[in-house]
Nucleic acid binder design. Structure first.
Lengths: 78, 78
DNA sequence: GCGGATTTGTACGTATGTATG
DNA sequence: GCATACATACGTACAAATCCG
């Protein structure tokens, strides 16, 4: 899935993977993203890396996080 | 300086301390902020905590970071 | 209401890479 | 070549809020 040898940081690669899934509709608006723990296990990264990827998605406006609840795909125009 | 028992996270407290110094003019626009290592030592926090504080300052528009150079106080309109 | 599981938040430490001076 | 400084990535631990049985 992710390439540790790429100059593109793992957390960026992971965010891109998730963003692509959102774009494809595999992850739908108002539905939860996989939890940090799930992302760790699925992609074999550390939690900090998974968190950084989710943070990037938030900064891109693709997701929003509710503390102690989870992170949800943002409802989007277009 | 910082209060570990406060409900306010250390990295927020640290960002506030730096923001106050900027506001007072103790840290001036276009001048460098203390390095992450310096912040660690001066405030007795881990590097991740110092980084989080600097990140918060960037998000607040108070500072900008140049990789491998340092973080600089942002030039501000009053 | 209680207890356990889940999930995010904070904080620590360490190591390595890369660019700058 | 060496020191500095930020970037990435790993790991660990505990806290706090939520959810569910």
């Amino acid at each position: 899935m992710l390439n540790p040898l790429s100059p593109v940081p793992l957390y960026v690669q992971l965010a891109d993977v998730l963003a692509t899934k959102i774009g494809r509709g595999e992850l739908q608006p108002l539905h939860p993203l996989p939890s940090e723990k799930h992302l760790q296990q699925e992609f074999g990264v550390a939690r900090g890396t998974a968190r950084a990827a989710v943070r990037l998605l938030r900064e891109r406006g693709l997701a929003m996080t509710v503390p102690q609840r989870g992170t949800y795909v943002t409802e989007r125009k277009s």
